[in-house]
Structure formats: C-alpha cells, structure tokens
C-alpha cells in the first residue's frame, strides 16, 4: 500500500542533496497554477472591477485584513505580497492532492506538495527567517538581541526554544492536516472500496471527507498566513 518516492541524489558542490522529483513536479505545478490565476485576474484592470479582478482584490483585501489585525499598515504593508503568495500557494497546494493521486511504476507522482514535511518546513523556516531578518533590519541588531532577554533575563532559554517550536509547529501543523487528509482519502478509496458494495459504501464518506478537506485546506492556508503575520509582528514591533 505504501508507495515509493521518486528520489534522486545528485552531488552539487561536493554536497549530496536528495531531491524528490514528485515534490518538485507538484511544487512547480502549484506555482504555475497560482501564477496563472494571478495573471488571468489582472489582465484587464479597470476602475470598476469585474469577475476575476474582483476575486483577486478580495484576496488582497483579505490578506490586508490579516496583516492589519497584527500590525499597523505602515509596518505591515511590505508583508502584504508575502501573505498573498503564501495563502494562494498553500491553498492551491492543499487542493491539488484532493481529486486524485497518480502512481506510476509504484512511484507516487501526484499529491499535495504540502503533504510533505520538507516542503512545509521549508516554508516555515523561511517565514521565521524573514521575521528575524526584518527584526534586525527594522530595529537594529542590539534591540533585536535584547528582545531575547525580555521581559526577564532568565526567559532566554525559553525564547530560544520558542523560535524552534514556532518553526516546527508552523510547518508540521500544515503538513499534518494535509497529510492526514490524504491518508484518509487513500484509506477510503483504497481499502474500503473493494468490490461493488465497498465502492458504493465508500462514495458518501469519500465525498464528505473531500468536502471537509477543502474546508481544512482553506483554514490551514488562512492559519499559516495568520501565524506568519503574528510571528513577524511579534518580532518587528517595539512594544512588548
């Protein structure tokens, strides 16, 4: 029942890196879809928005709302495009694995890229890294360093642990939700749907779970962006 991943291990600059070709494929597909949506939505811009432009402006306003609920727009405006890209990319990625999976020669090729911990953790590390980068850039290195000893000096170890915990929970929460959703779909489609009766019995729970997965995928995309803004605002704000 378990499928292999199409791994390759090229050596680049003396370091052996492991690439999962399926992940690379799905990351590329998700990125292309997001880019196409954005491109199509903004081809005919008008003062009076219609159709796709409305949709994209709604996304922008939604992310703007998330940013504004965490910091003032003067500080947070620069993270707007980050939030938009994150929410669209994660949502599209979450949706990709839902309708089907493609297995070729026992290798799993089509799935949600976010159902892989490496991908979600990469995003989480990037977000936390950005929060540190902007904290240093906007407050200066000494202020940034002092923040690790506030409000009390002995909080320092906890602050260090917090950074790693934030990264791990941010990445693994997304991974866990999407991976669990795909596991259950696999179980419903692969194990329950054996024989005619099994297929019939599997239809309703599968449809129900897919509907729920759409909901979970949307919620997880929202939570990821929300937490991104929370962490960044926590780092760049002066008053805490």
């Amino acid at each position: 029942m378990d499928h292999k991943s199409p791994l390759i291990h090229p050596e680049i600059f003396g370091v052996t890196l492991t690439f999962n070709l399926a992940n690379m494929l799905m990351i590329t597909i998700a990125s292309v879809i997001v880019f196409l949506i954005a491109l199509l939505a903004t081809r005919q811009l008008a003062m009076k928005p219609t159709g796709m432009q409305n949709f994209f402006e709604w996304i922008m306003d939604f992310v703007k709302g998330i940013v504004k609920s965490n910091m003032d727009w003067k500080t947070g405006g620069r993270f707007h495009i980050l939030g938009i890209t994150l929410i669209m990319y994660i949502f599209v990625s979450n949706m990709l694995g839902l309708p089907f999976a493609i297995v070729y020669n026992d290798y799993l090729w089509w799935k949600s890229p976010t159902a892989d911990p490496a991908v979600t953790l990469a995003l989480a590390v990037m977000v936390v890294g950005l929060s540190h980068y902007y904290a240093i850039r906007m407050k200066g290195f000494s202020e940034y360093g002092k923040d690790f000893f506030r409000p009390m000096w002995f909080m320092f170890p906890l602050k260090i642990i917090e950074e790693f915990a934030n990264t791990l929970t941010l990445g693994l929460r997304l991974y866990g939700n999407i991976f669990a959703g795909e596991i259950l779909l696999t179980l419903l489609a692969g194990s329950l749907a054996t024989g005619v009766g099994g297929h019939l019995a599997a239809i309703i729970p599968t449809i129900a779970w897919m509907g729920f997965s759409v909901f979970v995928g949307a919620i997880q995309a929202f939570i990821f962006v929300m937490l991104t803004m929370v962490y960044i605002s926590h780092k760049v704000s002066h008053d805490h």
């Binding site: 791994l7 890196l17 070729y104 953790l121 696999t186």
Partner: peptide, 21 residues
C-alpha cells in the same frame, strides 16, 4: 495508473526539496 493512493512522503532528509521549494 490513476487512483487515490496518496501515501509516500519519503523518509529521510530531502534537502533538495527544501532548496527547490
């Protein structure tokens, strides 16, 4: 073949995936 199998997050550290992502 297309079916609903979705398992297969590879074991091990996929450094390449992270960089690619």
């Amino acid at each position: 073949t297309t079916n609903a199998y979705a398992l297969g997050a590879g074991a091990g550290f996929n450094g390449g995936d992270i960089l690619f992502q």
